[in-house]
């Protein structure tokens, strides 16, 4: 870990301004991912801005019937919230499928969105990794890639985004609310929030310098049967090989997003319209341009079979 300076931010706008003017600054909230990465010198911030005191820990109804989730709401609290469990069950289930009780107690909503990949080469500073050290190469391509992405990959990076929560938020059409260093706020649709790796896998979101997430807003409830199905080698405390977040309505229409397959929660609008025709049709659209390795090719079939089971369950 490199030495760093530390401050406690007084307001979201102050935090953003401080982050913009201090080279090498990072926000810290739960620290469940950042501190690990700092110990390994994968992240080397020179300044930490502690946002824990910013009173962004409320879950509030929005005027149009949705829900606004403060950036600092802990994963445990979000999963247990009665409104989330009733109206956005897919989100509650996704949260509980992730990490462990201890981590969920500490991890925040914004931090969960911004967690880094679990690619083992990203974690080993002896190895090349374009995400950790831009331009150094990608050891995962041609290496151990069983966990890695099958869609939206690039020649620079095949990492996945590890979050379960974000997959559920994607299927719920969430937006990310932010404040910028000049105090202006904006809302970013989750679909526009995450970037594909392309040539710059180290730039993972469309946040600008200093921009701070203040909340995630869910639109008004859409009802339907909501399922989050996470497939993994062991029963708990493992990242998804493939996960499916689905909302299926009585008329057979619905929405589907997948985790464990891409650099971001994976959703293709055209695939949703195939839901009445079944899992094979949906998967054909969703994973149309899949580029697999020898080790992760199974994910295509796994995704289709998992989705088929989810759709069957939704029908009842």
């Amino acid at each position: 870990m490199k030495s760093f300076t530390y401050e406690r931010a007084q307001s979201p706008a102050d935090a953003a301004a401080a982050a913009a003017r201090t080279e090498g600054a990072k926000f810290i909230a739960g620290g469940t991912n950042l501190l690990d990465l700092m110990k390994l010198e994968i992240e080397t911030p020179t300044h930490l801005i502690d946002v824990n005191a910013l009173a962004l820990d409320k879950i509030e109804a929005t005027p149009d019937g949705g829900l606004r989730i403060g950036a600092l709401v802990r994963n445990t609290d979000l999963a247990a919230d009665a409104r989330v469990r009733r109206d956005y069950a897919v989100l509650s289930r996704a949260l509980l499928a992730g990490a462990s009780g201890q981590l969920r107690n500490k991890a925040t909503t914004a931090g969960n969105l911004l967690q880094r990949t679990r690619c083992p080469y990203f974690y080993d500073t002896n190895q090349p990794c374009n995400k950790r050290l831009p331009g150094s190469g990608c050891a995962a391509i041609g290496g151990f890639s069983r966990q890695h992405a099958i869609v939206g990959t690039s020649k620079a990076c095949i990492a996945t985004h590890p979050s379960d929560m974000a997959v559920a938020m994607r299927v719920l059409d969430a937006t990310v609310d932010t404040v910028q260093p000049d105090g202006k706020t904006r809302s970013i649709a989750l679909d526009d929030f995450y970037r594909l790796p392309g040539e710059t896998p180290h730039i993972e979101t469309t946040l600008t310098k200093g921009e701070l997430i203040t909340a995630v807003t869910l639109p008004k409830p859409v009802g339907g049967t909501q399922i989050y199905r996470k497939v993994r080698d062991r029963a708990s405390y493992a990242f998804a090989l493939v996960s499916v977040a689905a909302i299926v309505q009585r008329d057979g229409s619905g929405r589907v997003a997948m985790g464990g397959v891409a650099h971001r929660p994976w959703h293709v609008a055209a695939a949703d319209s195939e839901i009445p025709r079944g899992a094979r049709a949906v998967t054909a659209r969703l994973l149309a341009d899949a580029a697999t390795t020898h080790e992760n090719a199974f994910k295509v079939k796994l995704a289709e079979r998992t989705l088929a089971a989810v759709l069957a369950k939704a029908k009842g």
């Binding site: 083992p120 080993d124 290496g143 151990f144």
Partner: peptide, 11 residues
């Protein structure tokens, strides 16, 4: 898991 190019246990 072995990286057979680089010669180490990756995980």
């Amino acid at each position: 898991a072995i990286d057979k190019r680089l010669g180490f246990f990756v995980n």
